[in-house]
Design a protein around this nucleic acid. Structure first.
Lengths: 230, 230
DNA sequence: CCGTGCATAAGACCAAGGTCCTATTTCCCA
DNA sequence: TGGGAAATAGGACCTTGGTCTTATGCACGG
C-alpha cells in the first residue's frame, strides 16, 4: 500500500512475447520513444515508414501493438489503419502526432485506435495507452484462437452433420430433426453422435456455445410468436 | 434505380418514435440545427443546457440521440457524457464544437460518442451521424429489452433453482448435479423442470442462451485440462 | 474395378430426461 | 398459530438420448 515502484518496474506489463512497433519517419522520435519504452521494460522494434512495417509485420502478425505517426511521407497512419482493417489482420494502434486535426482523430478512433496522443507526449499517458493496447491484443488473440479451434472442428463436419448441428442447437428433438430432414430418427442419432465427437462437445450446452462462436443460433425461421406446442 | 429523392425524403430514417435532442447554449445554433433536422423529417427537442436536458430526459429515457455542444456554461458535454455513462442510462451522443481540441475528441470517442463534428458542419456529415446514432439506439434498446426479460424471469427463481440452472448450463447430468448439491436426482428433476418453466425455455439450448445473457457460463472451476471421464 | 467416405437405417438395450401424485420438513410472515 | 413458499424425496411410468452391431446404396478417385 505504501510502497511505490518509482521507475524500472519490470514485471506485470511487458510480457516477454509482445513487441511495441514504433513507426515514425523521424529518427529522433523513434529513438526517444524506443528508449522510453525499453526503460519501461518493453521489447521494441522500429520502422521508418508504414510500408516497411506492413511488409515486415504482415508475414508473422506478431503480438504487440503499434505506435504510429499520423502523418508520414508515403502511406500515412490513417491509410495504414484502413489497410490493416480491410485485410483482416489486426493489431492495436496508438496514434502519435505533432499537429493533428479533429477529423483525423475522429477517423482514427472510429476505426478502432486505442488512443491518439499529441506531442509533447506525457510519459504516463503513453505507457497507459501501451498497456491497454497490449491487453487488447492479448484478448483479441485469445478469442480468435478459440474461434479458430471451433471452426477447424466445424470444417470436418459433413453437410448433413452441419444440418443436424443447426437443428440440435435450435432445440429440436431428434424426431423433429428427422422429420425436418426427411430421415429416420436412427440416422439423426448417428449424425448427432458424430457431431458431438467432432466438435469435441461433451454436452449439449457445450455444443450450443461452440455453435454460437460460429454464428449458428436458433433457427430464425422457426421463431413464431405462438410457441410451437410445448 | 434512376429515381432519386432530392430532399424532403421522409421515410426510412426518421422513425416516428425517436427524437433528436439538441443541447446547446446558443439559441441560434439550436434553431439552425432544429430547422435542418426537421426538414429532414426528424422529430426534435432542444435544451439550453446539459442540466436541463438531463433532468427532462432522465425521467423517461426516451429513444433517440443527442446533438451536444462540447463546451457550455455549467455542465459541459464531456461531463454530461460521464454522468450518463456512470448512471447506466444511455443514449448515443454526437458532439458538436466550434473550437475543440484533440484530447477532448479522444475522450469523447473513447467514452462511446458516435461522432465529433467541428463547425462549420457539413449537412451530410450531420445526417449521417444522426442516422448511425439512431440505429445504435434501436439496437441497444432491443438487446437491453431482451436482457431485461430474461432477468425478470431469473429473479423469480429460488436460490436452489439458480444453482441447478448454473449446473445444467454447465452441461452436468442430473445425477452429477444431485451429487454436487447433495440432493437426490428426483429433487434435481423437479427444480430443473421449474427452471425451464420459469425461464420460459422450451429446450436446453434455449436455456443456455438465456443464461448467457445473464453472464452464466460453464462452471469455470470444472474446466480442468484433462477431460473429466467421458 | 475396388476402396473409401457419406448417408441411410433396423434391432437391441440401457441411461437419462421429464411428469404425475403424494408426502414431509423447515422457516417465515401475517 | 395457522398458512404458504421452498426444499426434500419416493414410486410409477413414459419419452428421449445414446451406443453398438450390422447392412445397404451411392459417388468419387485411384
Amino acid at each position: 500500500m505504501s510502497y511505490v515502484n518509482e521507475m524500472d518496474a519490470p514485471p506485470d506489463n511487458a510480457r516477454p512475447d509482445q513487441t511495441i512497433f514504433v513507426v515514425d519517419d523521424d529518427p529522433a522520435v523513434r529513438k526517444s520513444l524506443t528508449r522510453l519504452l525499453r526503460s519501461a521494460g518493453y521489447h521494441t522494434s522500429s520502422f521508418d515508414s508504414a510500408e516497411t512495417f506492413l511488409r515486415c509485420w504482415a508475414e508473422h502478425a506478431m503480438p504487440g501493438c503499434v505506435l504510429l505517426d499520423l502523418s508520414m511521407p508515403g502511406l500515412d497512419g490513417l491509410e495504414l489503419q484502413q489497410r490493416l482493417n480491410a485485410s483482416g489482420l489486426a493489431i492495436p494502434l496508438i496514434f502519435i502526432t505533432g499537429h493533428g486535426d479533429i477529423p483525423s482523430t475522429v477517423s482514427a478512433m472510429k476505426a478502432g485506435a486505442v488512443d491518439f496522443l499529441s506531442k509533447p507526449i506525457r510519459e504516463e499517458a503513453l505507457l497507459g495507452a501501451v498497456n491497454e493496447a497490449l491487453e487488447r491484443d492479448r484478448r483479441r488473440r485469445r478469442t480468435r484462437a478459440e474461434h479458430k479451434a471451433v471452426d477447424r472442428s466445424y470444417q470436418t463436419l459433413t453437410p448433413r452433420e452441419r444440418e443436424v448441428l443447426a437443428l440440435v442447437v435450435g432445440g429440436l428433438l431428434n424426431k423433429q430433426i428427422a422429420a425436418a430432414l426427411g430421415a429416420s430418427e436412427k440416422t439423426v442419432k448417428i449424425h448427432r453422435g458424430r457431431v458431438m465427437e467432432k466438435m469435441k462437445a461433451r454436452s449439449v450446452p457445450d455444443l450450443v456455445r461452440a455453435a454460437q462462436k460460429l454464428g449458428i443460433g436458433p433457427d430464425t425461421s422457426s421463431e413464431g410468436p405462438a410457441g410451437p406446442s410445448r
